[in-house]
Write a protein that binds this DNA or RNA. Structure first.
Length: 355
DNA sequence: AACATCCACAACCGCATCCGA
DNA sequence: CTCGGATGCGGTTGTGGATGT
């Protein structure tokens, strides 16, 4: 119920009378200093409470009511790019507040994605979840083509070599864990960055490829792509992307990074399994070499641009939802601000349906 | 009808960031 | 430069209505 704090300021739900006082005052005088406003407006509230009530509820330009399907898709796409940056997402949805979007996400969209078998944090198929405990089962699952996730299952069916895909998947997962936005381990990531990996650009390439695959898996219709759709996408995908070759040193670094990452989470056994398993790292004779490494950030940017502009491969904003630090640096770089602004504009207008 | 549980959402809290003196 | 107040942000909580038993 209504509560009064130690300064005799009211908390909790606003009454219509309070709302009216706030509206009247702001319409006459503007809000000015929020701290000073309550006294001037005759409200027994703190300034913060007034600001929140105004910006989230009383502001005249607020759009109320249900989110449209289009808004829903925009939110999902932007979330894939921006994560829980609610205010940034809100800035692309006129009339919607960050609070409203956040609530909508937590109450509706998260569940919806989960039901679709997509991890709402990573926007990846949920087979990535529980990675560390699932690793030993992954290969067997791939060989049986019996994964619970329909997207992955589809892809696996289409692969001539399910084992190879399992290897890709494992490496995906390792990198995903190391770069996870939900639980970043800076020590491990920095290890990755500063250690003796010969060419980090190969990892960038790999992540992009990974993102492409993710795009194939996650994007498209809400509902499962048909066999023909998957076949066609995969054909394009395979024609355009190749996997990086990782040397033994690189592999060891990944394992070291993973060890550091998991050292704090009682998963050392799993790490050892990864380290010792025959399928944890793609050997060079299984995975094709990189055609070319792209040494410059601008190259990555242009590749992403091509990706956005290309019609042949699904261009899903979530395909850039990589939180691996070096890419994060690019996103932080002021020089590329305008690029990202453009990108986000495009992302927010991406068509959701598979064409 | 009464009670319990679930669910959606407004509002709060604590921390981060901004900005002017 | 740095300090402190103002504002913004994201996570979380509390409340009330809806639904289930």
């Amino acid at each position: 119920m209504m509560e009064i704090d130690e300064n005799d300021l009211k908390k909790g739900p606003w009454t219509p009378e309070e709302d009216q006082k706030l509206i009247d005052y702001i319409q006459k005088h503007g809000h000015g200093s929020w701290r000073a406003l309550p006294k001037l407006a005759g409200l027994n509230r703190c300034g913060k409470s007034c600001r929140l009530r105004w910006t989230n509820y009383l502001r005249p330009d607020i759009k109320r009511g249900k989110f449209s399907e289009e808004e829903e898709h925009i939110i999902i796409n932007l979330h894939a790019v921006l994560g829980n940056k609610w205010s940034a997402i809100a800035s692309h949805l006129p009339g919607r507040t960050d609070n409203e979007i956040k609530n909508f996400w937590n109450t509706h969209l998260k569940k919806k994605l989960l039901q679709m078998g997509i991890d709402p944090v990573t926007h990846r198929p949920r087979t990535d979840l529980n990675l560390l405990s699932n690793l030993p089962q992954l290969l067997a699952a791939a060989n049986l083509s019996n994964l619970a996730n329909p997207w992955v299952d589809n892809v696996l069916r289409l692969q001539s070599d399910a084992t190879q895909l399992a290897k890709i998947q494992v490496l995906n997962n390792i990198i995903q864990v190391l770069s996870s936005a939900s639980a970043p381990n800076m020590e491990a990531i920095n290890h990755f960055r500063s250690s003796s990996i010969p060419d980090q650009n190969q990892l960038y390439e790999y992540l992009q490829m990974n993102a492409k695959l993710e795009g194939l898996l996650v994007n498209g219709s809400i509902g499962f792509p048909t066999h023909d759709q998957m076949q066609s996408k995969l054909t394009n995908y395979e024609a355009n992307f190749q996997l990086p070759q990782l040397s033994g040193d690189q592999a060891q670094n990944i394992i070291n990074g993973l060890k550091m990452y998991t050292a704090s989470s009682n998963s050392t056994e799993c790490v050892d399994q990864v380290a010792n398993s025959s399928y944890s790292i793609p050997p060079s004779n299984v995975l094709p070499n990189l055609v070319s490494a792209s040494p410059e950030c601008s190259s990555i940017v242009s590749q992403i641009e091509n990706q956005i502009n290309s019609n042949d491969i699904i261009s899903n904003p979530s395909s850039i939802s990589i939180t691996f630090e070096p890419l994060g640096d690019i996103m932080e770089n002021e020089a590329s601000d305008s690029y990202w602004k453009d990108f986000i504009e495009q992302a927010s207008s991406q068509s959701w349906s598979m064409s």
